[in-house]
Simulated scan of single mutants.
Amino acid sequence: MVYKTILAIIGAATPDQFLKQAAELCHLSEAHLSVLVVVMAAPPPIGDYAATISDAWLEEQTEDRRKLEAKITSSRDVLSGLASGAEVEGLYCEAVWAHSRIARRAIYADLVLIGDADIIGRELRRQAIDSVLFDARRPVLLVPKAAPVTLMPRKIVLAWDSSPDAAAAAREALDLMRGTDLIDIVMIEPDADGVRQGEDPGTDIAAYLAHHGVKGMVDRIVADGRTIAEALQDRAAELSADLIVMGAYGHSRLRERIFGGVTQAMIEAATIPVLLVR
């Protein structure tokens, strides 16, 4: 996929450095940058004390809108000399409506950039990732704080488990993989059951990539007591990889939030950029 329209979702407190990073990414990729500043409103007061606190709630709304407008203005100023034609829009809504409103904007992007919790805020980050992956069905590029990010990676780690989501991620990243120095197809303790992953796990996806002119190295790793996410991150660090590519939420969001999962662990603790695809 050649990314020509990139959406960056930010909050009112997102540092300017993230915007500069997004602008540089789009400049090098010859892509158009759109920025969506999101501020989620507190729900209206209800119950016996609604009348008592309604004034405070209205004042909070006024302040939130002021912060939103200020961030839109400052973001335009930051981008004015960095990204020609960049668009900055604002969204103010209650959390219950955030999913649909963010998704409505994300469907017009090839790729959505989302920073870590320090960059965007924990609640907005969760809402943004879910709405983009599940509602808009667009790929998400997670950008950890202070991590370099590029759409011309030299070394890529492809997390592979023979699932449809992993296959979708591999297809999404085909253009990124061409011209790289290394594609490491990482499998964490695969089961050679001859059914789901085949008797020689990883050779199927390596053959698929080869048909597209991409040479991948199958790397079967023993976890040694680590979680799958930890093993992936360790391998990426060993290779000095620029990007991890993986399918997202093989299990339901609710199950991953309650019991944990690879996607949730990577979202929470990514140290290099991660391309999530569903």
Rank of each mutant, 00 (worst) to 15 (best):
C93Y: 05
A83W: 07
S84C: 06
R104I: 02
I107C: 09
R125T: 00
A109W: 02
D116N: 10
A117V: 14
S84G: 07
R105I: 05
H99L: 09
W97V: 04
G81V: 08
I119E: 14
Y92E: 10
Y108Q: 10
I129P: 05
V96N: 09
L111C: 00
R104W: 10
R105T: 10
A106M: 03
L124M: 05
I120M: 02
V88W: 01
G81W: 06
E94T: 10
V96G: 01
L111Q: 00
Y108T: 08
V112H: 04
R105H: 12
A86P: 08
G121Q: 05
E94N: 06
L113D: 00
E89A: 14
D110R: 05
G85D: 13
E123I: 14
A95P: 01
G115K: 02
C93I: 09
I119Y: 04
R122N: 11
D118Q: 12
R125N: 00
V88N: 04
A106P: 04
E87P: 03
Q127W: 08
R104N: 14
G85S: 10
R105S: 11
L113W: 04
L91N: 06
R104Y: 12
E89N: 12
Q127S: 13
I120A: 01
D110V: 06
Y108A: 12
S84H: 13
